[in-house]
Design a binder for these strands. Structure first.
Lengths: 222, 222
DNA sequence: GGATAGATGTCACTTAGTGTCAAATTGGCA
DNA sequence: TGCCAATTTGACACTAAGTGACATCTATCC
């Protein structure tokens, strides 16, 4: 039963199973409910039973979707960075990082559901500063991101993803994105306006370029 | 039980209390036992009771020293990087990172106990690649290191440690050190000789310099 | 030696998380 | 449409992680 972290390798299902899509949607729904409870009552004071009840599933099923309580927060925590990585995956070789990220930020949908979602993301990110269990989920999420980042960078630099330089770039770039995420979330939580966000896109791109010694961020040869 | 006749009796404490020193030594002893068990039987197959028995303490006491099973691995995992950070703390402003690290590596004691210890560190670091629970401990350890690193860098650059640039440098530098640690451990595990380690000191310094855009690594003004 | 304070052990207890199996649900196919 | 096969879910029992409370021990200070 697909423990939650691993990538989806097998897709060949004959009949009966649940679609990958639906699994993800389920995980997300659970995660949002868990995030709300974590935020309102704290992690320790939120039981697996409460989360399960909030979603309307049995406790046993909850533990089939998530290997433990903390990791219930991961899908929500991952959303922003995950989206960012998806954007990075289709980053054209001939475009700079700034331009590509700005293009993403401007084309992003902004419906109310999206917004209440972003709210949950920010809350979890801020919570990750204080609550050790959420911190763990936050770090584990970025650990996964780092691996994806290695593939993206490897592809961009025409090197294997196990190359030590590639792994270094991936680690430092991901770390930079994480710190800025934390910073932006804290600022938004404190009531900053959206104007500063536009700036942080450029900040992110710059930070990645600095963190990778200029190896990642600029257009590269096809 | 613990007939601890040796001399850490007169450290700073009012009455009855255990010295900080001794607490740390206890945590370390537990951690080494836990590391051995984790390595031999895996984390899941190692119970808190087994760890407690191996050390000769009650299970209740074990949970007084560590908040959960995974974190029993932290002191061992932290040792190398912790030592590295201690070295960084006394990094003279007028010396380059390479020179300072090399000085450390050459002056390090090499008694048999130290060596069997290093062995445990390597095993845990390698284990952290596969076992999610140890991975968590590894990442949490580096999260703590990152905060210490921020203070060191802040001091070196004459900036507050909450400064976003300082935090970025701390995060990327720590990430770089972590990746190289993983790489070196894997190499040693695969039977590499010590010659390559000497190289990796320079590699570390270079990586930190690159990761921080040159802000950290060179001598700076007093 | 006695008072004091923190460390440890014991025991009872809560709850996170798993194994197992029967019932329900899903999607493919005739 | 309705049956089939794989899979998901729920229910229940169970293991083990982790905590609270309290008595006991041990070291230090007077």
């Amino acid at each position: 039963m697909r423990s939650d972290g691993d990538s989806d390798t097998m897709n060949d299902r004959k009949s009966g199973g649940m679609s990958e899509r639906r699994q993800q949607r389920m995980r997300l729904e659970i995660s949002r409910a868990a995030a709300r409870l974590f935020w309102e009552h704290g992690v320790a004071a939120t039981s697996g039973e409460q989360i399960a009840n909030a979603v309307g599933i049995s406790v046993r099923t909850l533990w089939r979707y998530f290997r433990n309580k903390e990791s219930c927060a991961e899908p929500v925590l991952a959303r922003d960075v995950e989206e960012c990585v998806a954007v990075l995956r289709r980053w054209p070789r001939e475009v700079s990082l700034e331009d590509h990220l700005v293009e993403w930020a401007t084309n992003r949908p902004k419906n109310p559901d999206q917004q209440s979602y972003d709210d949950a993301v920010i809350k979890m990110t801020v919570l990750a500063e204080k609550e050790p269990d959420i911190r763990v989920a936050w770090l584990m999420t970025h650990d996964r991101i780092e691996r994806e980042m290695a593939e993206i960078i490897a592809d961009r630099l025409h090197r294997p993803s196990e190359d030590i330089e590639v792994r270094l770039h991936a680690a430092t770039a991901t770390a930079a994105l994480r710190v800025i995420s934390e910073d932006v979330s804290a600022a938004l939580m404190a009531g900053a306006d959206l104007a500063s966000i536009g700036n942080s896109i450029k900040h992110m791109a710059d930070a990645v370029r600095v963190a990778t010694g200029g190896a990642v961020g600029d257009p590269v040869d096809p």
